[in-house]
Computed example of a mutant assay.
Amino acid sequence: MPDFSGRIRRHLQVLAEDIGPRGSGTEAEARAAAYVEAQLRAVLPRVWSEDFKTPGAYAWAYLVIYGLALVGALALVAAAAAAPFASGRGLAAAALVLGVGAVVVLLRENTTAGTLGGWFRQYPSRNVIGVLPPAEAEPGTAAPVVLSAHVDSAKWGLMFDPKGVHRFRALFLGGVASMALVPVLGLAIWLTGRAVLGWIAVVPAAWLLVSMALLVHREVVGTYTPGANDNASGVAAMLALAEYFAERPPRRVPLWFVATGAEEVGLVGMLDFLRRHGHELRDAAFFIFDNIGSGHPKYAVTEGMIRSYRLDSGLIDLAARIAAAHPEWGVRPARNDLMSTDALPAVRQGFRTIAFRAEDDRGLLPNWHWPTDTLDRVDVDVINTVARLAEAMIREMDGG
């Protein structure tokens, strides 16, 4: 059984400490990408990078969306306040339009069909890609495996405080429900003329205001985290596997190694990669490594916070069989119903996909988007276990 620990430690040190915080579209992210490219060039025959533009944050797009819904909610409250003097149908119609617009744009943003990101200032980012051909078979005779991890790290914000992060999904879904309630109330008032119903909109207005305040605080006060677990751990595993397979290549299966940029601001790097290469990788299996350095090693079976997408059943079954054969690893299945990873655009576009992660006893990501996401809080043994699982899966896919 291979041991990746030494390789993993070396890459973690460079990414999480020597380079440190690596915000999307920043110079530090560029240094991390350059490091990954140099490491891949040292062991793989074909390596290149692809530049793209990215927004520097996702918060501003969400502030626009929340703002539309908030204006709609306030219009309903105004209609209720004017109820003794007017039917409020005009304000209700405005709230209906604003609320529907907010919900539609939110769904597009959250399912990676981004609508608003291009409205804001763009920054340079890039993906780094390396390909290892099989040792014996001609390229194209077996489906490739794409091993991917994002290099950028996120800003911290109060919604990610470890004391309350277990409420993050409820906070987000509460915002979604608040948006959805605005057009429902608008339609009810427009149909019935009972403007007094607009007082109910005080609740979604308050929820949306809190959500917007948290987003503004994160962008104005928050700084980029060291990103040791999120996601130097995933990049370290990917690089360790590239070095290992370069010495012992699969017989039939081509391997692609993809370090994406700008994952933390809307999965921009993976979307760009799929746009450029999806046509040549239609049969590929995607292995996504994200937050695999602290807690209990897991393989995800679902992905998505609003809509839950089932990841590939064949890859899940393979991971389960190998994990069952190695009970000492302690690998278990998990649902990812928090913020999306690079697995989401892949599975939405029909690619066979599995994602690897590590969770604490509460089923949460330790030190997620928090300043304590530092190298000393990463467990190399957990990353090593995930790398071993991925290696065993690839060997099995290669014919044993």
Rank of each mutant, 00 (worst) to 15 (best):
M238R: 05
R335V: 08
D342W: 04
R194G: 07
P45H: 09
A78C: 10
W368F: 15
L68D: 01
L318T: 06
L271H: 12
P139S: 06
G130H: 13
T54N: 03
R362Y: 13
L239T: 11
L70P: 00
H279P: 08
E37G: 07
L241M: 15
A73N: 10
G117C: 02
G20P: 00
R248I: 05
V253P: 12
P55N: 02
F85T: 14
A34Y: 04
N384E: 11
V253M: 09
R388E: 04
L338Y: 14
S178H: 02
A325M: 03
L147W: 01
K298Y: 04
G363P: 02
V14A: 09
G227F: 08
D317W: 10
E37F: 03
L12R: 06
V331C: 07
A16I: 03
A246E: 08
F52I: 07
I354N: 07
A59W: 13
E29H: 10
F172D: 03
P327T: 01
E303P: 06
V202C: 13
A392C: 07
A82N: 12
V378M: 09
P162Y: 05
Y309N: 09
A355I: 00
A346D: 02
V210G: 01
R377C: 05
F52W: 13
V47T: 13
I8Q: 10
K155C: 06
A201W: 09
A149L: 04
A149I: 00
A213K: 03
A387P: 10
Q349M: 10
T112V: 14
I288S: 07
